[in-house]
């Protein structure tokens, strides 16, 4: 689809807004519909859209594979770190009340960090899976 002028122009216009919407869904998840899972999928979809229009190699240049693989693990580790931080600060595992002086603020902070971890992990997995399928040649060709 590299030669399609309409797709290239519309893609260039739309992709920043798709990524921005993904971030909005992530950080506004406490107040409106959204959260880490949705944000991760929307961010990954934005990059996949880019790869479909330009090319997978181009997308690999923007979001390289080592970064994607690191994101898969970093997301899960961020989640676990928040849980362990609760223990270190004197609470239970995944106890957010102790993350800030005010328990409700601690809850909000914990939820946001955990959602960020989920979003990073989901983005990484979705992109990695897409790269794996897209980078594999058909046997018949």
């Amino acid at each position: 689809m590299k030669d399609d002028l309409v797709l290239r122009v519309v893609g260039k216009l739309l992709i920043p807004f798709i990524l921005l919407f993904g971030l909005y869904v992530l950080f506004h998840g406490d107040y409106g519909p959204g959260g880490g899972f949705q944000a991760g999928v929307i961010l990954a979809a934005g990059i996949i859209f880019y790869a479909l229009i330009y090319s997978v190699e181009e997308a690999r240049r923007v979001v390289p594979e080592p970064l994607v693989e690191a994101m898969m693990a970093v997301g899960v580790l961020l989640y676990v770190t928040v849980g362990v931080a609760g223990q270190v600060l004197g609470g239970n595992f995944l106890d957010y009340f102790v993350l800030a002086a005010d328990p409700v603020a601690g809850q909000l902070r914990g939820i946001l960090l955990v959602e960020c971890g989920v979003a990073v992990a989901v983005t990484g997995v979705m992109l990695k899976v897409f790269y794996m399928f897209a980078g594999r040649g058909n046997l018949d060709q």
Binding site: G35, L94, Y96, Q107, L108, G110, I111
Partner: peptide
């Protein structure tokens, strides 16, 4: 939890 979206609150906090 201070989060008006109950789904997010349950997802990330109550059932973290």
């Amino acid at each position: 939890t201070g989060a008006p979206n109950v789904v997010t609150a349950v997802l990330a906090s109550y059932r973290g």
